[in-house]
Write a protein that binds this DNA or RNA. Structure first.
Lengths: 248, 248
DNA sequence: CCAAAAGTGTTTGAATTACACCCATGG
DNA sequence: CCATGGGTGTAATTCAAACACTTTTGG
């Protein structure tokens, strides 16, 4: 931060004037469609240059008096209506040349992007679409080429999701309030890959921890024995908070 | 990033003009003094307002044509001369009001800080002090009140260090090239607290992994049996790369 | 010889792995 | 009744915690 050097310049760059920035916030918003077992990311179609008609992560430029996180929430509010929401800062991308507007714009304004990582429940998330702006859930497996460096940002978000699944209970922020243990397992396999753990071991481990409450409600999906619907009990999880708990 | 909304404004903030930012980079630079078993952080004494005569994290404002990481390296180069260096982005602090200059400065320029996390070897790090600017290693245990929100940033860096020690081989970036297993153990205890593991178990676990090479050189520190000096073998560690390896 | 620090080993219990097996339902 | 998915149990193995013990130095 602003510990500006005003001593004898030690190198050429110290003579350079300070860069002026516009700061953007981009959200990597994940969800999961339980019925299709697909990891989804929210994309919007850009209406104007640069990258008009490209899909991109929903983002905005930060306005006066607005904090970064406020901006992140504002985008959410403009694109989807949600009850439950998990949000945390992801990474800041700030190299020169990452936004083509820097070139045209000869005043030398730089564009910097602070990305946020969000998780919402698919069932609860209602997309706000005005018929003009395209907003859509895209399966992460087949996102197209995105605007700016957004493929890179998305990729980074995916890594974060993978890591968080392993040691924190974020799964319950994407799953419906009530879910079967298979739903949970499928989520882990789709994100972490097929061979992270055996189902019965996964099941046994999670149940032993005691923060999954069996509602007793049964649900049948096609053939086979009906499954119990479980709920995550945040209070029962509390003791595990910031302990090196391992879900995998 | 800049997916600026130009549709019908949905709320008042959308009418607000965009904020203009100066972007600062602040480094949390850790090291360890093996002889004293102390975790150190590099601080500089501020020469000018705001917060003149306060200690602060070494930082600078980003200049034209300079990437964030370049700026982080530039600060390093101005304050210390190092061979080995580990550097990664930490977090971006960007609320309004976090820098007092925003108030005086009525043009509404915001100051945003992208913090970086760095590890250097104490023995290799030569402080560049011109006799005017104060630069010093401070034991993390007793850092004073710092400028801006730097105590918070430092704290965040400390958490990152703690986490990274548990699953990645960053310890070998702060330790001298050759170290005793006790040096390594002491580093873990000073950062993670006394009771993270028993010494003999820690030792056995690490040696079994096979990426610590016994140089055969013995070193005697006062009374007691002399210890072997070990070296980290990055090649032998390669297979463990991005595996959920646990050092604790 | 004794204290102090380095280094080795052993015992015990828990956790992980890889399975085989039983249960309930739709067709 | 049988295929399908849900759910339980168990033996083998690995791993971790606690602690006792041996080795090598300085004084």
């Amino acid at each position: 931060m602003p510990g500006q050097q005003q001593r004898k310049p030690t190198s050429a760059i110290n003579q350079q004037p300070l860069a002026d920035f516009k700061v953007g916030v981009d959200n990597v918003i994940f969800s999961v469609d339980i019925t299709e077992n697909r990891l989804l990311v929210l994309l919007v179609m850009r209406q104007q240059e640069p990258f008009a008609n490209y899909w991109s992560l929903p983002g905005t430029l930060v306005r006066q008096g607005e904090s970064l996180e406020d901006a992140a929430y504002r985008i959410m509010a403009e694109k989807i209506r949600v009850n439950n929401l998990y949000l945390e800062q992801l990474y800041t991308f700030g190299g020169p040349k990452r936004d083509p507007r820097e070139a045209c714009d000869s005043y030398g304004v730089r564009y910097l992007s602070v990305s946020y990582f969000a998780l919402v429940r698919f069932e609860d998330a209602q997309l706000i679409t005005d018929g003009v702006t395209g907003v859509a859930w895209y399966p992460v497996k087949d996102v197209p080429q995105l605007a700016f460096d957004h493929n890179e940002v998305l990729n980074y978000g995916n890594c974060r999701l993978r890591n968080k699944l392993e040691y924190s209970p974020v799964a319950f922020d994407v799953l419906p309030k009530m879910f079967t243990l298979n739903d949970l397992y499928q989520l882990y396999t789709t994100v972490l890959g097929e061979n992270f753990s055996d189902y019965s071991n996964f099941r046994a481990r999670l149940l032993k921890l005691g923060f999954l409450y069996d509602t007793g409600v049964k649900v049948s999906r096609g053939a086979g024995r009906p499954a119990s619907l479980y709920q995550f009990d945040a209070d029962a999880f509390a003791p595990f908070k910031d302990k090196p708990l391992v879900f995998i």
